[in-house]
Computed example of a mutant assay.
Amino acid sequence: MPPEVESGSVRTLGVDLAAATKKTAVAVIEWGHGSARLAHLALNVADQEIVELFGATDMTGIDCPVGWPQALIPFLTGHLEFNGGPVLAYDGIEGRRLLAYRDTDRFVTARTGLIPLSVSADRLAHPAMRCAVIQAKIAALHGPQPRDGSGKLAEVYPAASLKLWGLAARGYKGRGTTEAERLSVLLEGLRGHAPWLDLAGHEERLAGSDDLFDAVVASLTARAAAVGLTAQPDDAHSPAAIKEGWIHLPTGGLDRLVCPGG
């Protein structure tokens, strides 16, 4: 069930979406004056709870592609209908890159040096299919959410957010001892960069689950998107962002999330 919160407070939801309920994590942060509190943290979350939390919060950041490359549609349609023209238009490695990566993926690589996983040619495809269904469920109750993040739903990329906030974000995913140590160090780094964030006693859980940790980072990035502290698609990127989705990258430090514009 959505967490109970004080009337008038601002809340952001972060979702680390997996292909199934297992390993899907959510985090709700409640924002006050100069501080924020982790109000809800859950693992193994089903679609219904995500949709309910979306309706109970002000902005959602979801760590999953919200769309596919535009080029993929005519390619698949051409293949289905034995129409070689649209298929041959993407012959060669450069053509396949257009099928595999969205405009926003290329923007993220240019801005951060990180290469997002491909939604159409990598293991993100299954979570993205689930994400499309969740978007449809949200639309049925709350109206369609623009894929460029101009509504109440923004696509986020926790590793990129962490890097832009000055935190080392490599090698912390997994269940090995090394990964666990790196996650613990990363959590301490986040606490140092955001001393105003009250983790409400969830430190041990966050240090033991990269899924929960990423959900918190997604919620923090949702706040950045809500207060205008993420890179927006310009005229060159906007047409693709509307159809394919847009990964919101922070443009200010973590300290500005509690003091937007200050």
Rank of each mutant, 00 (worst) to 15 (best):
T221P: 03
I62A: 15
S7Y: 01
I134N: 07
L162T: 05
G192S: 08
L229R: 11
L220F: 01
A180H: 07
R223C: 02
D91S: 11
A207R: 13
D234I: 09
A39T: 07
H202W: 02
L186A: 02
R11A: 11
G61N: 07
P86N: 12
T24R: 05
H33P: 03
I50N: 03
I50M: 12
V28I: 05
L229T: 00
C64S: 15
M1K: 07
L41N: 02
H40T: 02
W246T: 01
R223S: 04
R175E: 06
V156M: 10
V108F: 00
A224H: 00
L249R: 05
G166S: 10
E155I: 14
R96E: 15
G32R: 13
A19K: 15
L124G: 06
N44C: 06
G166I: 08
I93K: 15
T77G: 09
D255R: 14
E188H: 14
V51Y: 01
A125C: 11
H237L: 04
A215G: 06
R11L: 14
T230W: 04
D255S: 13
A222N: 08
R11K: 07
V45A: 05
L98M: 12
V217R: 01
W31E: 09
E179K: 06
G252H: 11
R111I: 00
V119I: 13
A89I: 04
D198Q: 06
G113Y: 07
D214R: 08
I242W: 00
L162A: 15
V227F: 06
P146R: 07
D148C: 13
K163N: 07
G174S: 03
G84N: 13
A200N: 13
T221V: 07
G14C: 11
A42I: 00
H202L: 02
H193W: 03
A18S: 15
G14Y: 09
L162N: 02
D235N: 04
P146A: 04
G151Q: 11
S35T: 10
A89R: 13
V45K: 07
E81F: 12
R205D: 06
L99T: 03
A215L: 04
G228F: 00
A100F: 13
A200T: 03
A89G: 15
G143C: 12
T60A: 15
E244G: 04
V185G: 04
P65K: 08
Q145D: 07
L164G: 13
A139L: 10
L186V: 03
H79G: 00
R11M: 11
G85H: 01
Y172I: 08
Q145H: 09
S184I: 01
K173W: 11
G201M: 08
E203V: 06
A27K: 02
S7M: 02
I50C: 01
V45D: 13
L249E: 03
R130C: 14
S7R: 09
T221D: 10
I93P: 08
E30R: 10
R182T: 12
D47Y: 08
A25Q: 01
S9Q: 08
G32W: 03
Q48R: 14
A160V: 08
Q232V: 10
W165Y: 13
E81T: 15
L212E: 10
V216M: 00
E155D: 10
E6A: 14
R111H: 02
